Structure formats: C-alpha cells, structure tokens
Simulated scan of single mutants.
Amino acid sequence: MTPARLPLDPRFPNPPGSDDDVALWWLGQAGFAVRFRDTLLFIDPYLSDVLADKYRGRIFPHRRLHPSPVNPSDVTGLDLVLCTHGHTDHMDLGSIPYLQTSSDPLFVVPRAEAVKGVARGIPAPRLLGLDAGESFARQGVTITAVPAAHEELTVDAHGQNLFLGYVIEIGGLRIYHSGDCAPYPGQAGIVRDLSVDLALLPVNGRDAHRRDHGVPGNFTLDEAVTLCRDAGIPSLVCHHWGLFEFNSADPADLAQRLTSVDDIAWRIPELGVPFTVSGASA
C-alpha cells in the first residue's frame, strides 16, 4: 500500500475504480472520513493542535505525534460531521469553525452536549442533537445513536447520554463507530440488533494512572475483538492510537496479536490511506 501524501486532497475523492464502494480515510485518533458517491461525512475529526496549548507543562502534554492529515479550512463538499462526545479530540474547537469555510455541514452531537457544541463553533441551525436510541436520515445516510461508556455510562440531569456511538447506514453498509468506549452491560445486544457490517473501535485500553489524571480509557484490543464476536460484526478497524504518546498503542503489536484472529476481518489503518468496503446496494 502506498503511503498517503499529506496533506490529503481536501475533496476526499473516491480512490480510482471505487466509485460504487464506500471509502474511508483514518484521520488520526478517532477521526474518520467516509465517502459514498456524492456524500462525504466526518466522524470525530481532531485536525488542530489546541490540546498541546491547553496541556503544555502538565503530566500529559498532548503533543501531536503526526501532523493533521488535512487543513480543515480546505475541506470541500462536507455534508455531515458526527461528534460522539464533548472531549476536544472529538469535538474540536480548533476544527469545527474551519470545516465551515468551504462547506456547510450539519453537525450531529449528543443532545446533552449541544450547548458545548455551540460554544465550540457550531451554528445552532446547523446542529442536530441526538440521544441513544434515536435516528435520523439525510441524503441517503441514516444515523442511529447508541450509548457509549467512557469508561462508564454517564447521563446529564435529564437522563441524556454524554457519550454516544453511531451506527451509520451508507451505501448498503452499516458502520459502527463506538466513540470513546469500554464494555458495558447489554452493549453487544444493542449493536447486534443493528446488524453492523464494520466496527471502528478504539483499542488504546485504560488504566488507573490515566483515569486518575483525567484521561478515561477505551477498549483493550481483546475487548474490541470480543465485542465483534458477540455482536456478530464481521470486520474491525482499530483506532485511537498514534497521536498522543501517553494514550496510544503499538500498531506492530496490535497486528502481531491479531494474526491469530481468523474469524474477523481486521485492519490496522494507516493515516490518510483510503480503504474501501463494498455494500449490499453498491
């Protein structure tokens, strides 16, 4: 596979010969771009370096280990931006205003974080708040929100989830992005009922040291594989590594550990390198 040339083409065109497939690009951390034909959506794009300023001199300095793969101001034709929760590496105040420079996307956020979304630069008319169990459809895309536990299921004073995952139905595929998430009771059944084809799951794990210093964690690799098996998901893409030194995983180690997994198609993505998946209707 040819390494990506950064910055990426901000139009995110389909790779040659894949016009009827769903194309995905890993943008680093939990971020993905997804294209099907004329529709382009982003999930959790962290394309700035604002956290390096916020945490400079602290125990976890949040310095980027790689550059942003695209300048958010240059992105064109962006239809939807999904933010799974309010942490800055998922709802990025350094990207949100600039993603509106050359596009006019709709932003989907947890309803519990709608005020934060507006404060981060989302115009109220362009913001859609969802809670777990709710869905909406637009331009041939259906988004269904499911609970996420980062590391616990957490709700606001109105009982609305602060952390979400999304199942995105596009091009005949159902793609599950869990958001930042660890296992919780009933999760496999919720996801299984949505007939997911591809799971985008964080695999950087969790521990008391990070949690005690304000960094809740995610699935371990084994837990991500187990969820795919229990929920009947045939394909897994591992993410949420490689951006911050203190909160990462070794891709070579991930690949080595996955060599014994032969019942699930798995991928360790490369930054900015597109891959395609064929859907039932493609």
Rank of each mutant, 00 (worst) to 15 (best):
Asn14Asp: 15
Ser18Arg: 14
Asp19Cys: 11
Asp21Glu: 13
Leu24His: 03
Leu24Gln: 03
Leu24Gly: 02
Leu27Val: 08
Gln29His: 13
Ala30Ile: 02
Ala33Glu: 01
Ala33Gln: 03
Val34Asp: 04
Arg35Trp: 05
Arg35Phe: 08
Phe36Arg: 11
Thr39Pro: 12
Leu40Thr: 01
Phe42Pro: 00
Phe42Glu: 00
Pro45Asp: 02
Leu47Ile: 04
Ser48Asp: 09
Ala52Glu: 10
Asp53Glu: 14
Lys54Val: 05
Tyr55Cys: 12
Arg56Ala: 14
Ile59Tyr: 11
Phe60Thr: 02
Phe60Ser: 06
Pro61Asp: 10
Pro61Cys: 08
Pro61Leu: 07
Arg63Val: 07
Val70Gly: 07
Asn71Ala: 14
Asn71Val: 08
Leu78Cys: 04
Leu82Met: 10
Thr84Asn: 02
Thr84Ile: 00
Thr88Val: 15
His90Asn: 08
His90Glu: 12
Met91Gln: 08
Gly94Lys: 01
Thr101Ser: 06
Ser102Thr: 07
Ser103Asp: 09
Ser103Gly: 10
Val108Tyr: 01
Val108Ile: 14
Val109Met: 08
Pro110Asp: 03
Arg111Gly: 08
Val115Cys: 07
Lys116Asn: 12
Ala119Asp: 12
Arg120His: 13
Gly121Gln: 13
Ile122Val: 12
Pro123Ala: 14
Ala124Lys: 13
Pro125Cys: 08
Leu127Lys: 10
Leu127Met: 14
Ala132Ile: 00
Gly133Lys: 06
Glu134Leu: 06
Arg138Phe: 05
Gln139Val: 02
Gly140Phe: 06
Ala145Pro: 00
Ala145Ser: 02
Pro147Leu: 06
Pro147Val: 02
Ala148Gly: 07
Ala148Met: 05
Ala148Asp: 05
Ala149Gln: 12
His150Trp: 04
Val155Asp: 06
Ala157Pro: 09
Ala157Asp: 10
Gln160Phe: 09
Gln160Gly: 12
Gln160Lys: 15
Asn161His: 15
Phe163His: 14
Leu164His: 07
Gly165Asn: 04
Glu169Phe: 01
Ile170Ser: 00
Leu173Ala: 02
Arg174Asn: 00
Arg174Lys: 11
Gly179Ala: 03
Gly179Met: 01
Asp180Ser: 11
Tyr184His: 14
Gln187Asp: 06
Ala188Tyr: 00
Ile190Met: 11
Val191His: 00
Arg192Tyr: 00
Val196Trp: 00
Asp197Thr: 02
Val203Ile: 15
Asp207Phe: 10
His209Ala: 15
His209Gln: 14
Arg210Pro: 09
Arg211Val: 15
Val215Pro: 10
Asn218Glu: 13
Asp222Arg: 15
Glu223Tyr: 09
Val225Asp: 01
Thr226Pro: 00
Cys228Trp: 01
Arg229Val: 02
Arg229Lys: 09
Gly232Thr: 03
Gly232Arg: 06
Pro234Glu: 05
Ser235Ala: 15
Leu236Cys: 02
Leu243Val: 04
Phe244Gln: 05
Ala249Arg: 05
Asp250Ile: 14
Pro251Tyr: 12
Pro251Ser: 12
Pro251Ile: 04
Asp253Met: 06
Asp253Gly: 08
Leu254Gln: 06
Leu254Asn: 05
Ala255His: 11
Gln256Val: 10
Leu258Gln: 09
Leu258Ala: 10
Thr259His: 13
Ile264Gln: 07
Ile264His: 05
Ile268Ala: 03
Ala280Leu: 09
